[in-house]
Each structure stands twice: as structure tokens, then as C-alpha cells.
Design a protein around this nucleic acid. Structure first.
Lengths: 152, 152
DNA sequence: ACACTAGTTGCAACTGGATCGCAACTGGAG
DNA sequence: CTCCAGTTGCGATCCAGTTGCAACTAGTGT
């Protein structure tokens, strides 16, 4: 579940408006799709869902809005180990970083957060004096379900 | 330096042959390019370097050889936070995992390895009973050089 | 040394996600 | 209500990567 239910609805929209960006009908629609998504969506899935709410929306607008959100650090772009080809997936940036585990057999995606991850980031900031803006950690392997099934 | 000098030259080739794969003139050339690279190369850069050694090599062969190496876990595919657009970069898989830090200002890439990273992987294997095959961690931010320059 | 064949290559055509240029449209400040 | 910088839609275009297929060849067997 990339988009926990605890999140305030309309937060992305509020965030963009507070930065003085224009709120158009199309942007509102796309934000709504991204905010209410229950899985990781790629651009074409976002387009399809947005068109159900507002038939006239163009692909280009979706791309432009996503890159706007990315520039403002409101969404993260993933490729989930290229399990689905070259597609890029988007998720609302969470308060706390998490990593993605992609199963090479069933294609399922799990998420995980850990304070070791936070400590690792802290170590990097200190030892490399590198100021971290965004992190992306993706792991490919075999999930517990597939590992037990394999034994049958 | 993605390809430490300590590595045995010809190791990729030996590895592929030990798996019973055919060693063609083209593959030897591409392996040599990948093995001796001093930076992260994308497919078109690999093609260009390979053509300097063997003019007839086709881009399709480069793609096919890279995906072969990837399937056999001998190279890793990176996109370095998409700083260079949609390009994919390749590096020989190292003995010990490392992470990549991409500077959002100068575009420079640094590498880092840490036992916290190893511990994090251990935690995931244990707590999620997920069998890790490959990991990819990329961090976007600002490197120490750019941070000090910014103050000027 | 030679022949055989499964695996490999090169070429040309194609795919599909992403981008560009530009005219028309519009959110929201004044 | 006016105005215009910012935004949108459309068509054309780009470009990394893929596919189908005929020709070629590494490596095995004889």
C-alpha cells in the first residue's frame, strides 16, 4: 500500500497552491488520482484513471504534471527493478522513507521501513558530507510466498 | 570508480564461458569495454567504445549482450536518479554492494559502501523472509563540493 | 580437418514512452 | 472585468530499446 489511508486528502493540492502554483481542473484531477491510488501507477495508468474523471485530459498534461510534482519533491519516481519493462511508477512521497522489494517470480511489490535505513542515511550525510534530498532503494529477489510455493 | 583496478581482467569472459555460453568476437569486445570502463557507461557509449575496437558491431548486439550479462547477474543496471534522462547505465557487479550518490547540481556520481547497508539487507532477509538477489540504492542530493561552492 | 547445427549476429522495420513547438485557452491577480 | 503569464491539447517528432528474419559462426562430434 503505497498511499496510506492516514494521509490527509487534498494534501498534494494544498501543497502546490501554497507554493503559488496555478490549480487547474486538469491538475486537480491528476492529483486526485495520485492521492487515491492504492497501487503504484505508471503514467499511462494515471492517464486512464484521470480520463475517467475528465475525458479531455491529454497524455502530455499528465507527463508535465508528474514532472512538476517530482520537481517539487511531492512524488517519487520508481522503476521497480524494471520488472515491467521500462515503465516508471509514481507514488506520493511519504513522511518516512521506505524501500521497495520486487519479487522476481510473481512481480509483487512489498514495502519496508527500517531505522537501519535512517541510520544509513545519517552515516552518508556525515561521512560523505552529502546532503540527501531523495533516496531510492529497490531490491529484487524472491518473496516468502514464492519461496514456500517453490518447494511444492 | 565503478570498476576497481583490483579486479581480475577477463573475469567476465571466464565467467560466461564457465556457464557454457559461446564466446564470439563481438562479445569479447563488449566485455572488454565493460571491464575496462572507468565510469558508468550507457548502452550508446558502450557501442561507441566497442566500435573503436571492432567497427562492425551493431547496437542490437550491445543490447543483447548487456541483457545477457544482466540475466547472469554479472552487471547491474542503474539509472542514477534519471539525471541524464531515461538512459540506463551499466557496471560490473562488485563483490560487495555499494550505493550511488548523484549530485543534483553537478551531476557527479559517488559510490559508498557501508556495513550498515549489509545489516539492513540482513534485517530484510530475516524480517520479511525475502530472499535478496540484487539491490539498488540511489541517492539524490548535493555533494560536498557543490555545497561549499554554493556559499560563494 | 571437415561438417553440422544451435546459438549468434546484422539489418531494417517497428514499438512505445516521452518530448517539442506552437496556437488556443484560462486561473487568478489587480 | 481585463489581462497575461502560465497552462493545455494536438500533431509531429525523438530516441532507447525490441523484433523478425536471413546469413553467419563457435564449438562439438566425427
Amino acid at each position: 500500500m503505497p498511499f496510506p489511508q492516514t494521509e490527509t486528502p487534498g494534501r498534494l493540492q494544498a501543497e502546490l497552491m501554497s507554493r503559488g502554483l496555478r490549480m487547474t481542473r486538469q491538475r486537480r484531477t491528476i492529483l486526485q488520482v495520485v492521492e487515491t491510488a492504492s497501487t503504484h501507477l505508471d503514467a499511462s495508468q494515471i492517464l486512464r484513471k484521470a480520463r475517467k474523471l475528465d475525458a479531455g485530459i491529454d497524455r502530455v498534461t499528465v507527463y508535465r504534471t508528474l514532472s512538476l510534482l517530482k520537481r517539487h519533491g511531492l512524488v517519487d519516481e520508481l522503476d521497480l527493478m524494471h520488472l515491467q519493462g521500462e515503465k516508471h511508477f509514481y507514488e506520493r512521497r511519504p513522511d518516512r522513507d521506505h524501500l521497495h522489494m520486487a519479487c522476481l517470480r510473481c512481480g509483487g511489490i512489498q514495502e519496508f521501513e527500517s531505522n537501519l535505513f535512517e541510520r544509513l542515511k545519517g552515516q552518508i550525510q556525515r561521512e560523505c558530507s552529502f546532503h540527501i534530498v531523495v533516496t531510492r532503494m529497490e531490491i529484487g529477489g524472491y518473496c516468502s510466498r514464492c519461496r514456500t510455493n517453490e518447494k511444492n
